[in-house]
Design a protein around this nucleic acid. Structure first.
Length: 619
DNA sequence: GGGCGTGTCAC
RNA sequence: UUUGUGACACGCCC
């Protein structure tokens, strides 16, 4: 699969167009990969309008699922989506379109093939919905551009901050298909299916609604399609200045000469429907806003909100982008005059308005600790609070955030004080312990003397962590544009990038949460042992066991035939085929597990393992 | 080195 | 009963 995707990416980068994509989309390897990718999604447990869940497909024999997809694909009619509304952060509702599970599988099959093709043509400074790219990379990119021309007269300190009205919901179907064709998808059957998908409509409270425009929020393909749609906008702005060499190889691509010919530098960045353009003069910024309003209206069939598209002087105000606020400020004075300068540099700050709201919900969770009476559930709530704190802290990491960290820590600590006073009126003072003495997150808390509120279980302390331990990683290196999952080089760069930010291994005692207890109650049932799930999971088990017999350790071959053994065959259908319950054995060992006599010359280690599996069979 | 699960954030 | 993609963190298992 990976090799095929690499090939698509390479060819697409060379400008090749593709036909015959449909065959690739319904090949067995694509379907297996697609099911693997989406089965662990949260949504695999929720059904679409046909009330079918993921388990249903996992428990089919594999040929049946392949046939189900392959026989319908040439004249495929997707089902309407289920309409749901979710609260957004700003209180508004966001409409969701949930396709059926089968449609999600098919969309994922299409995404596996289409994404490499599109990725090769996407604009380098587009960051939303793309593999290996995150918000922090976009922010990093913006700051770098401001800093790169720190000495020059035309430093880009003016910004146009864009807002497209209901971007997902207003995408024009005909135009999108045209753009897909232009990007190299020349398989008419595939475009037909996408068109059917877009027009499948939705069902809201048993009523069918048709969709004339937009791509369903909730569809697996939708994010990719939105990037295809807006890719032309990226290049429309970007090819003038930022990436001139990419599309006009033989023309002048020297930025200095572009400047000479009267083009004002501009730099554009996009994250999904959020975008920012930087330029050096106020006049140019307003001209861009005006020009792009027309561009969106006529070329994109989208509307740019005039009120919410701001032109900002970065020296005076910050731009709101992805939950951060980016400003251009003077460099902080350093004692060494050699490094000090009067120049402006880009600085990302946390969006404190949003953060304050998040701290309030965090404080509510801290107060919940006081509602529990058992120390185990209190500890579980502390763990939950800690995960929220660490999540927030790590999100703020790429910005200048020490101030924000202290705001979080101060408020959490104050709330905790009130909770502890209430819980332990007499001893709450003794229940503030240094971080380094906590049993939870020991690696994180190593060497920190600051005291925090904690509770004691079996002589071990479990306490609330602090945000400030997560150090600001503001000055990390620029984003490597060559990282992509679709080339050998791109993957290598990515692995290098990741290992620099090495994770710290952590050893902590586990605590029983209410969820654990719920998980221990299972219904029993009979059914297929060799269903689709089994077919997939035994491959993972094979990789885990590295192609060796789990008992005698011999590598499998034609001479040493193998068998995938169910460790506990009495488990219910939804558990029997999970990876931990599968073990690859050579045929002789497998027979011995099922009570054939063990020859005396057999290795003692192997005998022990065989006996272990025998025990598990009996239970 | 792999798999599973939980949580945070963005859109 | 909340879809999707990406990033990150933690835990468990082998």
């Amino acid at each position: 699969m990976k090799q095929f995707q690499d090939l698509l990416y390479e060819k697409s980068g060379q400008g090749v167009s593709f036909t015959g994509l449909l065959e690739a989309m319904v090949s067995e390897v694509t379907i297996v990969t697609a099911v693997h990718n989406i089965k662990s999604n949260k949504g695999s447990k929720t059904a679409g309008v046909d009330r079918m869940k993921m388990d249903k497909y996992l428990q089919m024999p594999k040929e049946e699922l392949f046939q189900l997809i392959q026989s319908n694909i040439s004249n495929y009619k997707p089902k309407p989506a289920k309409r749901k509304y979710i609260e957004k952060a700003n209180g508004k509702k966001r409409p969701l379109g949930i396709p059926t599970v089968l449609d999600r599988i098919i969309q994922e099959c299409m995404r596996l093939i289409l994404e490499p093709i599109c990725e090769a043509r996407f604009y380098p400074h587009s960051y939303g919905f793309r593999p290996y790219r995150a918000q922090k990379h976009a922010i990093r990119d913006i700051v770098n551009v401001i800093n790169a021309s720190v000495k020059s007269k035309d430093q880009p300190v003016w910004a146009v901050e864009g807002d497209i009205k209901g971007c997902f919901d207003n995408i024009n179907h005909r135009l999108l298909l045209k753009k897909l064709w232009r990007i190299g998808i020349h398989d008419k059957r595939v475009l037909k299916i996408i068109s059917q998908m877009l027009k499948a409509g939705y069902i809201d409270q048993d009523l069918y609604h048709a969709t004339e425009m937009g791509t369903p929020q909730g569809g697996i393909l939708s994010p990719l399609l939105s990037n295809v749609y807006l890719n032309d906008f990226d290049w429309y702005v970007g090819r003038c200045y930022m990436e001139p060499h990419r599309q006009c190889k033989h023309k002048c691509n020297d930025t200095r000469r572009l400047k000479w010919s009267g083009i004002t530098p501009k730099y554009n960045f996009r994250y999904a429907d959020d975008w920012v353009i930087l330029t050096s003069t106020e006049q140019e910024a307003f001209r861009m806003k005006h020009e792009l309003t027309k561009y969106f209206k006529h070329r994109m069939k989208l509307e740019l909100s005039q009120e919410k598209t701001y032109v900002t002087d970065l020296r005076k105000n910050g731009i709101h982008f992805l939950g951060y606020i980016v400003k251009a400020e003077r460099k902080r004075k350093t004692p060494d005059p050699a490094t000090w300068s009067d120049n402006l540099v880009g600085k990302p700050f946390p969006d404190m308005e949003r953060l304050t709201k998040k701290i309030h919900t965090l404080q509510k969770e801290v107060r919940k600790i006081g509602l529990y009476t058992q120390s185990n559930t209190q500890a579980a709530q502390i763990q939950y609070v800690n995960s929220v704190i660490m999540g927030l802290a790590q999100y703020l990491q790429p910005s200048i955030c020490s101030h924000a960290y202290h705001a979080i820590d101060r408020r959490v600590n104050n709330t905790a004080l009130a909770v502890w006073k209430n819980l332990f009126p007499k001893q709450y003072n003794q229940m503030q312990v240094p971080l380094k003495e906590l049993s939870n997150l020991p690696h994180r808390h190593e060497g920190y003397d600051s005291k925090t509120f904690a509770i004691q279980i079996d002589g071990k302390w479990f306490g609330i962590t602090y945000a400030f331990i997560t150090h600001s990683r503001y000055e990390s290196k620029p984003f490597d544009q060559k990282m992509t999952p679709y080339t050998e080089d791109g993957r290598r760069r990515y692995v290098n990038y990741r290992t620099k930010h090495k994770p710290l291994p952590c050893d902590r005692p586990s605590i029983n949460t209410p969820e654990d207890i719920a998980l221990s109650i299972y219904a029993s049932g009979k059914g297929w042992k060799a269903n689709f799930e089994y077919f997939m999971n035994r491959e993972y088990a094979y990789n885990r066991d590295k192609g060796k017999c789990k008992c005698c350790g011999r590598y499998f071959s034609e001479l040493i035939p193998k068998h995938c053994h169910h460790v506990n065959p009495r488990l219910p259908i939804e558990r029997i085929n999970k990876v931990p319950n599968l073990a690859w054995l050579c045929i002789p060992c497998h027979r011995m597990v099922h009570n054939s006599p063990i020859p005396p010359e057999l290795d003692a280690k192997a005998v022990r393992k065989i006996k272990k599996y025998r025990e598990k069979l009996k239970k």
